[in-house]
C-alpha cells in the first residue's frame, strides 16, 4: 500500500511538473488614483503582475486586456480601439519565479457596467491563464450631441452657398 501511494505521489508530481499551463499566475489591482465614481472621459489604470510559478522558463509570454459590458441585456465584449492604445504586453521569456509588472491605462468612452480581465499565454502553454475580474461602472456625462451638430453643420454652408449661387446668377442676368 505504501509503495502504491509513493508511486501515485511520484506520478502526480511528474504530471504537475510536466504541465506548464498552470505555471503563470496573474494578479490585477486598480490604480489608487482611479476616480471612485468614474464618468465618461475619465482615465483608469490597472496594475498587473504576471508571475511564473512553475519550475521551467515560459517563453513567448503574451498578455492582453479584455473588457466586457455586463449591463443586463447588453452583455457584449467591447472593442478597445477607442478605449486603450495599450492592449497587450509581450515578454520573450519568463524565468521561474520571475514577475512581469504592467500598467494598463484606459479611457472611458461609454457609460455602463464593465468587467476587465487580463489573460496570458505562453508559447508552450496549453491553457489560458486569466486574472481575477475587476468590475467598474462608468457614469453618463452630457457631451456634444451629434443630433444637434449635423443639421447645423450641413445646412449653414448650404444656405450661404445657395445665396452665393443666386447672387452670381443675378449678376450674370444683369450683365
Amino acid at each position: 500500500m505504501k509503495r502504491f501511494t509513493a508511486i501515485c505521489l511520484f506520478l502526480l508530481s511528474v504530471v504537475a511538473l510536466a504541465t506548464p499551463a498552470f505555471a503563470l499566475r496573474i494578479s490585477i489591482v486598480p490604480d489608487h488614483g482611479n476616480p471612485a465614481s468614474p464618468q465618461m472621459g475619465d482615465r483608469l489604470r490597472f496594475h498587473t503582475a504576471i508571475q511564473n510559478d512553475g519550475n521551467a522558463a515560459q517563453e513567448g509570454v503574451l498578455a492582453w486586456i479584455s473588457l466586457v459590458e455586463t449591463d443586463s441585456g447588453k452583455e457584449q465584449p467591447v472593442d478597445l480601439e477607442d478605449w486603450s492604445a495599450h492592449k497587450a504586453v509581450v515578454s520573450a521569456a519568463l524565468l521561474p519565479g520571475q514577475t512581469v509588472e504592467s500598467i494598463w491605462p484606459m479611457r472611458l468612452i461609454k457609460a455602463g457596467s464593465y468587467r476587465v480581465v487580463v489573460s496570458a499565454m505562453s508559447r508552450s502553454g496549453e491553457t489560458l491563464t486569466a486574472s481575477p475580474f475587476v468590475d467598474f461602472t462608468v457614469r453618463q456625462k452630457p457631451v456634444v450631441e451629434s443630433s444637434r451638430i449635423v443639421p447645423v453643420a450641413l445646412s449653414a454652408p448650404l444656405l450661404i452657398a445657395g445665396l452665393l449661387i443666386w447672387r452670381l446668377r443675378e449678376n450674370r442676368a444683369r450683365a
Binding site: 479611457r107 456625462k141 456634444v144 453643420a153 449653414a156
Partner: peptide, 22 residues
C-alpha cells in the same frame, strides 16, 4: 461657415473630442 462646420463635425467624429463636455 465651412470652417465652423468642419470644427463642429470634428467634435463629434473624433472619439477623444466627442467626450468633451458642452
Amino acid at each position: 461657415a465651412a470652417a465652423l462646420s468642419a470644427f463642429s463635425l470634428l467634435l463629434i467624429s473624433d472619439a477623444e473630442l466627442s467626450l468633451l463636455d458642452n
